[in-house]
């Protein structure tokens, strides 16, 4: 047998997979699996780290907020709007409960029972994430008297529901609970 020259024809794939090729296929597939599994830590390292994911909560004192006033605070590094509605606003919001809306919701579903004057929403426009105006004194509250996002013109009503403009959803209401009559724990 001429064992001398570099005869690689035995390795060409023209003849299709032959029985003794299984070892090469097994070795290559194992190497492929190994290489692919290297991607797992490389990809997952970009996901939020443990300190970011750790449940964090924010306490908000709502006792000092006058009817018609709002405060801005932060929850998970994002703005949070806390607003005390005036009786007129509550009535207006309830009247609109049945109105035609893109993301139908009632005022009651967006507040806690017994505290329906306290509206807590994220201050993040559901369109592309700008902070809507209307929480501070003298800001443009939009056509529906709630919040107005200046980036692309989304109008939210007093209950933070989207009424006009490109935003697809109402301002998000985070999970929260009243730890006392005046203190809210968000998160």
């Amino acid at each position: 047998m001429a064992i001398n020259t570099a005869d690689t024809s035995a390795l060409s794939t023209d003849e299709g997979v032959r029985r003794r090729d299984w070892i090469h296929i097994a070795a290559l597939s194992t190497a492929g699996v190994g290489g692919a599994s290297l991607l797992f830590p490389l990809i997952s390292q970009m996901a939020p780290s443990e300190d970011v994911l750790a449940a964090s909560s924010t306490d908000v004192d709502v006792g000092a907020i006058q009817p018609g006033q709002s405060i801005k605070t932060t929850f998970r590094k994002q703005p949070l709007f806390v607003k005390r509605l005036t009786p007129e606003e509550i009535a207006a919001a309830k009247k609109d409960d049945a109105a035609d809306m893109r993301d139908p919701a009632t005022l009651a579903s967006r507040t806690k029972e017994g505290h329906e004057d306290i509206l807590i929403t994220m201050g993040v426009c559901t369109h592309l994430g700008c902070v809507p105006l209307g929480a501070a004194e003298g800001e443009n509250k939009g056509e529906f008297g709630g919040y107005f996002c200046p980036c692309h013109g989304s109008h939210y009503d007093v209950a933070g529901r989207i009424r006009k403009g490109p935003a697809p959803l109402n301002l998000k209401v985070p999970e929260y609970s009243f730890s006392s009559d005046t203190v809210v724990r968000v998160g």
Binding site: F40, P41, S44, Q45, A47, S49, E50, D51, V52
Partner: peptide, 10 residues
């Protein structure tokens, strides 16, 4: 080492 996913490994 402590918080990043697989950070210790990397």
């Amino acid at each position: 080492m402590r918080n990043v996913n697989y950070g210790w490994m990397l």
